[in-house]
Every structure is written in C-alpha cells, then in structure tokens.
Simulated scan of single mutants.
Amino acid sequence: MTLAQLRALIAVADHGGFTAAADLIGMSQPAVSRAISSLEREVGAPLFVRHRDGIALTEAGRRALARAREVLRNFDLIRVEVAAAAGEITGMLRVASLPSATGTLIAHRLRAFTDRYPQVQIRLFEGVDDDVRAWLCQGAAEVGVVTLPAPGLHTVPLNTHEMVAVLPEGHCLAGQESVHITDLTGRPFILTTAGCRPLIMNAAREADVQLDIAFEAGGQSAILEMVAAGLGVSIVPTLGLPADLGPVVTRPLEPRTTRSLALAVPSLANCGPAVRAFLDQHAETAP
C-alpha cells in the first residue's frame, strides 16, 4: 500500500471519477485506474462500484477512505509541524463554508490569512450544513462554518443575525411593519432544506403554528425566486441577502428569531498549524 494509492483513492472519491482525479493529482487516467485496482487487490475488496452514471464508494470503500484521509493528513503534518517549529506556517488549509457566509464572513478572512501566511494553500468547499459537517467528520475539510448548536465539534462564535419573513411584493402581509409567525398559518410556505430548517421549525412549534409546507428548497436564491414567482412565503436569514430583492420584500419576524454561526473543527487538540493560525487570526479580529 502506497501513498500514491491513497491519494488516488481520495481524489477519485472526492471528484467522482478517474479522469477528474487524474487532473487533480497529476497522474494519467490509466495510472489512477491501476492504483485503485492494485489497492483493491491488496485490501481484498472492491472500493468502488461502477455504473452508467459514474462510480460510487462501496461500504469497504467508505471505511478505507476515512482511514486514507487520516493517514495522509498525518503524513502531511510531519512537514508542516517541523516547519511550524521553525516559525513557518505552511501546508494546506481546507475550509468548508455555507454559501451565504462565504462572501460576507469568510472571503476577507481568507484574504487576510493568505496575506499573512502566503505559503499556505487554501481550498474552499461550499455546501449546506450537512455537507460542511460531513466534510469535517470525514477529514475533507479542517475548519468549517456551521450553524449552532453543533454537537461533537469544537466551535468558535462567528456571527449572529436575524431571521426575517420573505413575501412577494404586494402580499397582504407586506404592508405590516413586522410579521408574526402566526400570520403565516395557512399560507403556502417554502421551507429551506439547509441549516436554518431546525430554527424555523422550532420557532413554529414554540408559537404552536403548523406551517403549510408547499415546497422545499436548499439555496437562499432558489427560495427568493420561488417567493418572487408567488409560490409562497418563507423565512430566511438576513446574512447573504442581496441588496436588490426585486419583487420580494422582507419583514422582521416575531417572535425574534436569530441564527448563530461558528467556525468549527473536529478537535482543537488535533488541529494542524494552519488551522491553529486561522483560528488565532479570527480571535485577534473578533469584537
């Protein structure tokens, strides 16, 4: 078993194919295929199942992938820890973020970090909360933006912002200064599938409201487009809302509901030098 085989396994799993993996790690496609085949022979089990739409990990592959990430992370840490002992921060920083947080909260932090530590390479992943937590747990990312609470992760507060009602322009509730969550009863509701979902459902339960969930959507932009089309009303976080909402209006939500975001790592004790430096930089600039 070689490091090249493990790197090929991770690349194929992350990018869903041999050609994309080859481009990423600088190997030819046949070489990646041979590396996976030889690894499968060594472990005595298929790691991927091939089908018409691509490939997918087997159960053995999922377990091997988790261990491969751990092995390579520890191997790469040898170099960066030695460099850190000499006062030099190097290596790779893999950051997982929510789309609404990337431009508003993370981009300027990454820019300041790269200015300060130019020898650290940055990789940014974007996804919903479940994606971010999975990437952190699987080792695909070292630090991520999560919605609190986040059990099982070490978190550092990042930002707290309001949740607001979102209505089509001209809606009967749009003339109110604020919208009580009970006002949404009996109206077609567009529910997010992302991390705000538990917050919204909890607010409805506490107000003894049964939302009429007509549609579900993941991204904030999709929800805004559906509201603009008159398909329903919704509740979204203010973070990441565009300045121009078009034929959509927002109103403060009652009772007041907030979403809190944090930077999260699986374990503070096991953070590499680049992650520790990123968290330290955040602590320096936090209000």
Rank of each mutant, 00 (worst) to 15 (best):
A4S: 15
L6D: 03
L9D: 04
I10C: 12
A13Y: 02
A13M: 05
D14M: 07
H15L: 15
G17F: 06
G17E: 12
T19Q: 14
A21Y: 00
A22T: 03
I25T: 09
M27P: 01
M27T: 06
Q29I: 03
Q29Y: 04
A31V: 08
V32S: 01
A35Y: 04
I36F: 04
S37K: 11
S37L: 14
S38K: 09
L39R: 00
E40G: 05
A45S: 14
L47T: 00
I55S: 06
L57T: 03
R67G: 05
A68F: 01
R69P: 00
N74W: 09
D76C: 06
I78C: 13
E81C: 07
G91M: 05
G91L: 04
L98H: 02
P99D: 09
S100N: 12
L105A: 07
I106S: 06
L110N: 06
L110D: 06
F113W: 07
P118T: 08
L124W: 07
F125P: 00
G127A: 10
V128C: 09
D131L: 09
W135D: 09
G139T: 02
V143M: 05
G144Y: 01
V145M: 04
V146N: 02
T155M: 11
T160H: 10
V164T: 06
V166G: 04
L167T: 01
L167Y: 00
E177W: 10
E177I: 11
S178P: 06
V179Y: 07
T185L: 11
P188W: 09
A194F: 03
R197K: 13
M201K: 07
M201W: 03
A204I: 03
R205K: 14
D208K: 10
D208P: 00
V209T: 13
V209Y: 10
L211K: 00
A214W: 02
A214N: 08
A214G: 13
F215V: 10
A217F: 05
G218W: 02
G218C: 10
S221G: 12
S221F: 11
L224P: 01
M226S: 06
V233P: 00
V233Q: 01
S234K: 02
P237T: 09
D244P: 03
L245T: 01
L245C: 07
R251Y: 04
L253M: 08
R256Q: 15
R259L: 15
R259A: 10
L263G: 01
V265K: 01
P273Y: 02
A274F: 02
R276W: 09
F278R: 02
L279M: 14
Q281V: 04
A286C: 12
